[in-house]
Nucleic acid binder design. Structure first.
Lengths: 219, 219
DNA sequence: TGTACATCAGTGAACGCGCGTTCACTGATGTAC
DNA sequence: TGTACATCAGTGAACGCGCGTTCACTGATGTAC
């Protein structure tokens, strides 16, 4: 056993990346509250002071997580929206993807959508939106804010209201997964896809394999 | 200045209630994270150990807050639903009320809807629902969970899906207020009513008094 | 009506804990010559 | 190709802090007789 090769090298190589990934794992396993600088260091096998060489303070780490989370979420939305060239359907598909992504990454979703870490008014994350999602999509939040603050009439069918409806619907269902409300009812991440499709207006067929799943969580 | 009458009496009278109310004020002003047993005691003018005479531990205080929050929220929903005898409209009105209540009580909403403190599968808070809200309303969450877990088909028009849509929509819009996303865009609690009405399908007229509000927050 | 006493709601001092953060340091790396 | 040195990414010990919680206590209240 040559010691030299077994021992961790003094320099990590890409500690910053490793810290981010360990943070994501950590919050995924134990929730956002469990995210402490010390614990993240521990997980990577580094001293509790080491992270400060890459992040000014705890807040900076959270900000970096928010950016990373938004990047990943953005990618998922764009990938889903590419499933259709018809704008409305592309929008719906991205809504389904939003719900699924949030259900699968509840803790990261929480950080990524917390305005304490990210600025809703600024430009969206740096991912290339497909044609079907272009347009008002990118300035949606600021356009909406302007409309609302202007005091103008808000027709129920106003394009911005339609879009807000779609986004709020996805956010609402996503929140039920993220908060753990669905989990406490025995509804799991595996159900996210079906619920998302049905709630966005698709008729979802019965599950193929005989589902005794209803048994596992009481009547 | 008679000392006796000026000094706070040794016994508080209704410290439990006072602690709950101070807690609600505290989270309203400084957020859920600021809720510490010591600070609540401080606000009421009592030692930091006193609260433990009424709540076994911090968690018990949070649970009591969740119960109180749900009671208040339930009352608001019921009161709003009484605005119509037509079930769909009553449901819509309660959605508007939900959004407004959440916008006005963001911190309490957060605690009240956190399944760490409250059980979604159990009966809803103890408020008398008006006729228009009776029926599946009360068993909605468990009915929905059963349907989803059964693996049965989920038609987009299934009554439980329709209702989930409505609830998720309200929750989504509420979340935008609660999280501070709207606030960071300059959309305030005062706008909650209009947004809620428009998003639930009502055509909202322009604000009567000339709104220079759009000026206060940039272009 | 008066007194003894059990009960209970508060006090205030103290504790252990884990956190975020700082600090002087040291090992490793890369670059100038 | 070899050496001196600046730079930087880590270490590990230490700190101050505020928290949740416990404890022995004491002041006030209500009740039995």
């Amino acid at each position: 056993m040559t010691r030299k090769t077994r021992t961790r090298p003094y320099h990590h190589g890409d500690l910053k990346r490793a810290l981010l990934e360990a943070s994501i794992e950590l919050i995924h396993e134990e929730g956002v509250e469990a995210l402490t600088v010390a614990e993240v260091g521990r997980r990577v096998g580094v001293s509790s002071a080491a992270p400060y060489k890459h992040f000014a303070d705890r807040q900076a780490l959270l900000r970096a997580l928010a950016v990373e989370g938004n990047r990943r979420l953005g990618e998922a939305l764009v990938a889903a929206a590419e499933g259709s060239t018809e704008p409305r359907e592309a929008f719906r598909l991205s809504g389904v993807a939003y719900i699924r992504w949030a259900a699968e990454n509840p803790a990261l979703h929480r950080i990524a959508t917390d305005p304490a870490h990210i600025d809703y008014a600024s430009a969206p994350p740096d991912v290339d939106a497909p044609e079907a999602l272009k347009g008002s999509m990118e300035t949606f939040w600021t356009d909406l804010a302007e409309l609302v603050r202007s005091g103008a009439a808000l027709p129920a069918s106003h394009p911005l209201m339609e879009q807000l409806r779609g986004r709020a619907l996805a956010l609402g269902v996503a929140s039920l997964f993220v908060s753990g409300a669905f989990a406490s009812l025995g509804i799991t991440t595996a159900d996210a896809e079906r619920i998302a499709r049905a709630v966005t207006g698709e008729d979802v067929p019965a599950t193929s394999r005989r589902s005794k799943a209803s048994r596992t969580h009481g009547a």
